[in-house]
Design a protein around this nucleic acid. Sequence first.
DNA 1: CGTTATATGGAGAACGTTCTACAACTCGTC
DNA 2: GACGAGTTGTAGAACGTTCTCCATATAACG
Lengths: 352, 352
Amino acid sequence: MSIEEKKRLQRNDRVTIRTVATHAGVSVAAVSKVMRNAYGVSEALRARVTDAIEVLGYRPSRAARGLRGRSFTIGVLLIDIRNPFLPEVIAGVNGVLAPSHYQAMIGVSDARVQLETSLIESMIDYKMDGLILVAPRLPSDIIAKFAAQIPIVAVGYHDVGATAFDTVNADDQRGAEIAVEALLACGYRDIEMLSLGEREGHQVSVVRQREIGFRRAIQRAGLGSSAPITKIPIAPPKREETMRKFLSRKNRPRAVFCWSDLDAITLLSLAMEMGVRVPEDLAVVGYDNSSTAALGLVNLASIDQSGRELGQVATRTLISRIEGRTGAEHIFQMPSLVSRNSLTRSGKAPVT
Amino acid sequence: MSIEEKKRLQRNDRVTIRTVATHAGVSVAAVSKVMRNAYGVSEALRARVTDAIEVLGYRPSRAARGLRGRSFTIGVLLIDIRNPFLPEVIAGVNGVLAPSHYQAMIGVSDARVQLETSLIESMIDYKMDGLILVAPRLPSDIIAKFAAQIPIVAVGYHDVGATAFDTVNADDQRGAEIAVEALLACGYRDIEMLSLGEREGHQVSVVRQREIGFRRAIQRAGLGSSAPITKIPIAPPKREETMRKFLSRKNRPRAVFCWSDLDAITLLSLAMEMGVRVPEDLAVVGYDNSSTAALGLVNLASIDQSGRELGQVATRTLISRIEGRTGAEHIFQMPSLVSRNSLTRSGKAPVT
DNA sequence: CGTTATATGGAGAACGTTCTACAACTCGTC
DNA sequence: GACGAGTTGTAGAACGTTCTCCATATAACG
């Protein structure tokens, strides 16, 4: 009877916790206990159950788990999958998660608030155990409201005042300062920043933080109180146009700090096309130290904020919150300069 | 009583289908019917229910849905998030899914069979509605076994014999032929291929297909029966070393077709470092037409296989299968050449 | 030997949906 | 006015877990 039932189940249907229970000759509750290694199971029982699990190839249904308890999944929300910095963060997340029983599921919002919201809601509806939001666009109070329903860590989101969720960031202000200091050390005095134009004045965004650091460093060097910042529009056709205009300006600066390698590399390409020599006519420092920047053909000096490390730290922070920590943590990491030929001919930064 | 209950529920807990039902004064089943717009609901009832849903801000639990019926989620499995070709595929998937009520959740396997398997299993365990596997490493029979449990479309996986799942591919054989034909048209006769060394002889992989196309084109041109193929090891340190060795070989060919822009761009960088002029000393054609290839600094001729389109087609194919189609489809798309300076000085390919 | 503490296993109620089967009601139609 | 057909709504059993009691067995102790 029990054997027949077993066979029938094995032939047709999914192996459920019930299949395992009958096979091992124990109750469903016992199997569940073993799975969650909860208190109150003898060694003998545990062995019987694990054997049955092995033999039957049982995998608990995440859907059912999510309905009642934990789902052992953490959601990662990426603003954009094309910026080569973001995959690094994912690599960090996966690295930490791999040896654990957690898994990452990724959603891509394409920088659209609408989609971002609905993805976060979906992840909550899946009863995921926690969320890592990478450079989210949503305002802080909305994120806080979500954080009441699920543990959240935001990466690349400067909001040290947040009490409902944690943040993990590179110190973007300091990163910008380091870039400017390097340019100063090379003797450049006429320095401009290429930044990203964003809809709102999102103070939390990494870009705004870099602007703040840029301004501070310029002023600290006594180079006038108005640090010039050119904003690059987000729409692709205008993007190149703005850079071309910048390169052909009569009062083009001697050096430029660009908010991201993404645009810095395009700038280098356009400079080559237009006959502007780098670094002789224009020195360039980018941000992110992406793999493309390291190519011999490109050779772009850049500020390195290890995305991988950011991902690792964010994951550990999230897990500690899932496991009961309350009270927000706000973690900062120190970026560093990677000097290359776009800074000086030799590629070496002068020692300060 | 009913009002009090409503209030209590609203204050504390999640808004469930039951909350909506009591609020609208109908049964749970009725609400479910409206949600799934099933047969047998009057306009009046539908209106009452949709109103209640609106007012309460009800969102069905994906976890619970998954337990019983559809979850309206499709899983995408990426082998690697760093190759800039793959995000394009995601963009295509998201584009098709956006207006629908489906959502994509992405898993990254980092080319590890172990992780790939467990991610696929997880997605099944979440009762996702279908899977898009991008360049999976798993053998065909294993995928077929999974396909018995969930609709599957494989992208970048050449297995036209598969009956259990669909495939969507660019014609990689033809792509390689086009590359060789372009090089021939430029007058180069001494052509070699840089390919990727893989553990097994995975005939299904895009790389192998490109090798087949390369060989055929070379033989068709009457250039000897043994088309020379150099394999690049997967491990990063050896990777550069192999390319350096290739570039410094005495019998280095006049032209090279590289399996992917990823390596072609590194090759260009090394060539510059080592004083090998492109295209005067060595002409190069890559594969994927990645955004980096288009940069002025790089200017790499490449075979374009629109990843975005691949993603779109795969998604439509998957949805049609989810909605009942049986019998495998195997779809091919035609790649094309994008000529740039790594092919000829002018960047234009001669007309054949 | 009776009483109490402790360790182990199980019954069964959730969780929030879907969906089958059926009840109730409205029309025609003979 | 009885009967079938069609329409609209509902009750309630799944789905596969988790987890709170509760029952039983064993040990400890006076």
